[in-house]
């Protein structure tokens, strides 16, 4: 029995140097194989003194179980190690960039157009459309801007012929929609407009959103309410809004709408020309003359209309300082949005 501790020691010594699965196999054969050391001990059991045999048998079996468990543990460990190694041999450089087509970007003007449209849609305004090449009648006459009227100076017009122009504003959509349908109406009309003017702050084509609402009891105070709600959604709840009297031939009373300068919080800066205010909208109550042109009774109906320049809003929103960037389509510009 005195040889058993040394057997365990020798196993421990040998097993601690095992590094590979074939070593563990050899160890198993050496100790537990048909001619293994532990097997031989068990085979020799009958030769042991009967008085000591039970105790000796137990001791050998204990060692056998111990060695079996150890070998299984080491083998499992080695198999795990080997699996890991095989995975690592297939390792990728996970820091390499993935493969994808870089997504294209939306044009900033379109972003803002969509934003404006969404806000008014949520208030129940539907989207109306009209042609970009428009009759003088719709662009001017029916909007109370007769030929030889000084108000025509407010807009430099591209002419196709005496009676056909590139629309100078989206307001003709008002006339086209009102001619087709009776009130109540709640419509916005986004689109391209044209003026023959080109310099640092003007492009011959730009975008406007026209909006109007007509019903039996629409007041100037409603115009203020709707536009204030729009501005507070578009900018922020805290943006100051101011309505200033102005003149448009197709509205009366007319207003220009300013917001507190978003760059200097109204303290005065270069963008707001030290005034603290930025003009962003023209608006007013629809002129009774316009109602007469479309056959609405101005005694029964009233309504408001407004129009805004999308380029200006976009420039304010993103801090863009040159309007011409919008139409160059330089990808270094477009990719920023």
């Amino acid at each position: 029995m005195e040889d058993l501790p040394s057997l365990k020691e020798s196993f421990l010594r040998e097993s601690s140097s095992v590094r590979a699965l074939h070593d563990i196999q050899a160890l198993r054969v050496k100790y537990l194989g048909k001619r293994g050391i532990v097997t031989e001990k068990l085979k020799a059991l009958p030769t042991v003194d009967p008085a000591q045999r039970p105790a000796y048998g137990r001791a050998v079996n204990e060692i056998k179980q111990y060695i079996e468990a150890e070998i299984a543990r080491i083998e499992a460990h080695l198999r795990e190690e080997e699996y890991r190694k095989s995975l690592l041999s297939e390792a990728l450089d996970v820091t390499l960039p993935g493969k994808y087509t870089p997504p294209g970007r939306e044009h900033p003007i379109q972003h803002v157009l969509s934003e404006i449209t969404d806000i008014f849609s949520s208030m129940g305004f539907e989207v109306g459309e009209g042609p970009e090449v428009e009759l003088d009648y719709y662009n001017f006459e029916a909007l109370n801007i007769p030929k030889n009227h000084p108000a025509r100076d407010m807009q430099d017009t591209f002419y196709i012929s005496d009676d056909v122009v590139l629309r100078t504003h989206t307001s003709p959509v008002q006339i086209r929609v009102m001619e087709m349908r009776p009130p109540p109406l709640k419509v916005i009309a986004p689109g391209k407009v044209y003026r023959c003017d080109a310099d640092v702050s003007h492009t011959p084509m730009f975008h406007q959103v026209e909006g109007f609402m007509v019903d039996t009891d629409i007041a100037f105070s409603d115009l203020k309410g709707v536009l204030e709600l729009f501005i507070h959604t578009m900018f922020s709840e805290r943006t100051p809004v101011r309505f200033r009297p102005s003149f448009f031939p197709f509205t009366e009373p007319s207003a220009e709408v300013d917001i507190g300068c978003i760059f200097c919080s109204g303290n005065g800066c270069r963008v707001c020309k030290q005034s603290g205010w930025l003009e962003i909208l023209g608006a007013g109550m629809i002129h009774p003359k316009v109602f007469e042109y479309v056959g609405y009774d101005p005694e029964t109906f009233s309504g408001f209309a407004f129009g805004m320049g999308v380029e200006r809003l976009t420039m304010l929103k993103y801090g863009i300082d040159d309007i011409r960037l919008f139409f160059e389509n330089d990808l270094r510009f477009l990719r920023q949005f």
């Binding site: 044009h107 391209k192 139409f327 477009l334 990719r335």
Partner: peptide, 12 residues
């Protein structure tokens, strides 16, 4: 845009 095209706006 998903296919990688960015939106352009040109004069008419």
């Amino acid at each position: 845009r998903r296919a990688g095209f960015s939106a352009a706006i040109n004069y008419s």
